[in-house]
Each structure stands twice: as structure tokens, then as C-alpha cells.
Design a binder for these strands. Structure first.
Lengths: 201, 201
DNA sequence: CCTGAAAGAATTACGCG
DNA sequence: CGCGTAATTCTTTCAGG
């Protein structure tokens, strides 16, 4: 799989800012032609990095409900199924599955009636739920990665962020991004060992 | 301020599904012309309901960091400033401000080093933070409102959802949405009282 | 990845109820 | 004021290199 380059990251940044921006305008900014931008976007979608073009809505204007953050202590085996049910449930905006058997979700519910919501979503009584805790929210913010380094490349060697001082390496037609010369050298050496062991291609 | 109608909601649904969908295609589906759709979208933006056209990204593919949910107990007066600092910080995806003096945020951090992150974001030691608690996440999902009733109108009288059986009322050129005849009657009566008391306009 | 032509979409101007 | 139609302008897509 090909790695992303800085141009891809810039395209992502520009589209995150305004997903309806013409490809021609993006092309101008990144120094490519519009067909090239179009191709890259298609590739970013194929790679699953871009899941979809969508809207950022102010849900407080659409839904009268009270925003809540709910922490569920769940039966260890039930986390996956709860995740799905929650994602499909009405009013739920975010689902976070913890590494311990807990699931968090943020939602807007009529009258903050979490008990009723859980009963409706998981059946009554919801057997997979051991315990739950509700926090009423006054502010819910989603911060799409538009600012600076938020959409950054990660170093192929150490996983740290690759900034403008980073280096790029081309091996067998693939581009790799490295955060510093020492990572580049290590990576190159590792790559050579890999090649020697497994053969080219 | 004008209320939304079902057509607006359908437009929002279609754009949430694919924000780059041609207005002409949307127009066909909702039975309008493309300029009409364009006008409505502009209005939805002006009303602040559509914040922006953006991308839904698979951030796990872009950022190597560990996803965490952090609960901060903060000094009561500090919540607003923390909110801002967090929203601007690198790797932070969501910020939730509670009605009690707590702030939650979800982020992807290198090596899940929350202590370092907090020091960097709020200064060391971070005085506004009384305590904090970190949960490592295995799954982070954002559920854009595309499914069924998620993007629903709310009844001008009772705040409940307005579905296909709902009613619409036109008073002084404004459209109002009501979930049932009794809400419509109550709302109309309330409106008339308001008019009588405050005068028209 | 580029260029240039063809197809397609958005925007504008204008008229209607 | 919101909508439709039609002309204009701009964008995307496609073919070929």
C-alpha cells in the first residue's frame, strides 16, 4: 500500500475545511491538475482514509434533547453488540468503546431520560448493562482536523509525527515518510534487510 | 426565523450521506430545481444548522496515537478556557463540557502520555486541573445523522419529533411544525395569546 | 501526471404567483 | 419571498500521450 505524501495531506486539509471546494481550486493550491486531484481523492477513498463527504451540523439547532455523556459498565462479552446498537440508535452522536468492559456514548435525549433510552435500545431490563452513569453536558464540540499538524503523517520508523523537517524516501516506487535522518537511516537499513531476506517485490 | 420543512431535512439527509452530491440530483429527489436547492442550502448555512461541508476521516489510519477518553475535574471557573485550549490542541477530536465542573475529551495521543499532553496544553503543572482519569479506547465512532429519524424536526409545542403524521401551520408567513393535532391547537392558542399581548410582528 | 475536448453542474438573471 | 426556466460560466470527466 502506498503511503500518503504531503500533497495528500494538504488535499485532506482543504477538503475537511470545505468538502465542496472545486477540485480545480485544490489543484491550483497544491500545484497539480484537477484530474490528478480527482485521482488522489478517489485513492484516499479506496484506502478508507476518507470515509465520506458529509456535513457538520449544529445538532443543538435540530434536536431539542439534552446532550448527555453516558458511561456504561457492560458484561465483558457484550461490548461489540452494544456498540452496534448504540451507533444505530436515535440521537446517538458518538460511541467510544474502552479497553476495559465499558462503553461510553454521547447523545441528545428527550428530557435526559437515559433509563428509558437504554430500555428501548437494549430491551428491558437491559441485561448486558451492569451499571451506568450519566453526565449532562453543556457543550459538545467536534474538532475536525483542520488545524496545522493535526492531520500529520506518521514516521514509518518511529510513528512520531512527520513535519516539514521530515524526510521522504523512495524505495521500489513507494514513498516513505520519516521524521528525522536517524529514523530514515534505520528504516532504510531495516528495509534492506527485509529485501535481502524476502527477495525483491 | 423560518422553521425547517421536510424538504430541508431531506436535503440535509442527502448531503450528510454525500456532501458532494450534485444539487441537480438532490433537486430531482426532493422535487425542486437546482437553484432552489442551492438557495435552501445557503439558508441552512446562514441559520448555522450546516456548519460546514467536511470529510469523515478514518483517523486511525492517519494517526498512530492511542485513542483515549480523558475526564478532567477542573476548577469551576476554568471550564470555558480549558474547552478552548483543548479544541485547539493537537490530536483532540472531541470535547465535552459537563454541567458540573468536569471536562471530557477524546484524543489520539502518542504513547497515551496524557500527563505530558496536559502539561503541554495547560502548562506545567496544570493548575486548573484538580484531577484526571484516563480511559484507553479500542473503538471510536462518529455516527452522522443519516438514519431515519435522527435528523428530525422538533415539535414547536412539545419538542417531540415531528414525523410524517405531523402537521404544519403557517402563521404570519412562518412555518411551524407540530407533532399532533393537540399540539397544533395548543400552539395556535399560545401564539394567539402572544399576538394579542405583544401586538403583531 | 498532463493537456485539451466533451459532458455535466452551478450560478445568474429574470419572470411568475 | 420562494420557485422555475434558460443562458452563462465554471467543473469534472474522459481520451490520448
Amino acid at each position: 500500500m502506498r503511503t500518503l505524501d504531503e500533497t495528500d495531506v494538504e488535499i485532506l486539509r482543504l477538503l475537511t475545511e470545505d468538502a465542496r471546494r472545486p477540485y480545480r481550486e485544490i489543484a491550483e493550491r497544491v500545484g497539480l491538475s484537477s484530474p490528478a486531484v480527482s485521482d488522489r481523492v478517489t485513492r484516499l477513498q479506496d484506502l478508507g482514509i476518507v470515509r465520506r463527504f458529509t456535513l457538520e451540523l449544529d445538532r443543538s439547532k435540530l434536536r431539542g434533547g439534552v446532550p448527555v455523556l453516558v458511561e456504561l459498565a457492560v458484561r465483558p462479552d457484550a461490548a461489540a453488540e452494544m456498540h452496534e446498537a448504540l451507533a444505530a440508535a436515535d440521537g446517538v452522536e458518538h460511541v467510544f468503546v474502552a479497553s476495559d468492559p465499558r462503553v461510553f456514548f454521547q447523545a441528545r435525549l428527550p428530557r435526559a431520560d437515559v433509563r428509558a433510552f437504554l430500555a428501548e435500545t437494549f430491551g428491558a431490563p437491559p441485561e448486558a448493562i451492569v451499571d451506568y452513569d450519566v453526565t449532562v453536558l453543556t457543550d459538545v464540540e467536534w474538532t475536525p482536523g483542520t488545524g496545522g499538524t493535526d492531520l500529520a503523517l506518521t514516521c514509518a520508523q518511529c510513528g512520531n509525527e512527520v513535519d516539514r523537517e521530515g524526510e521522504t524516501l523512495r524505495l521500489d516506487g513507494e514513498r516513505y515518510y520519516l521524521c528525522c535522518p536517524s529514523c530514515r537511516d534505520e528504516f532504510e537499513a531495516r528495509y534492506e534487510r527485509f529485501r535481502a531476506g524476502a527477495g525483491a517485490e
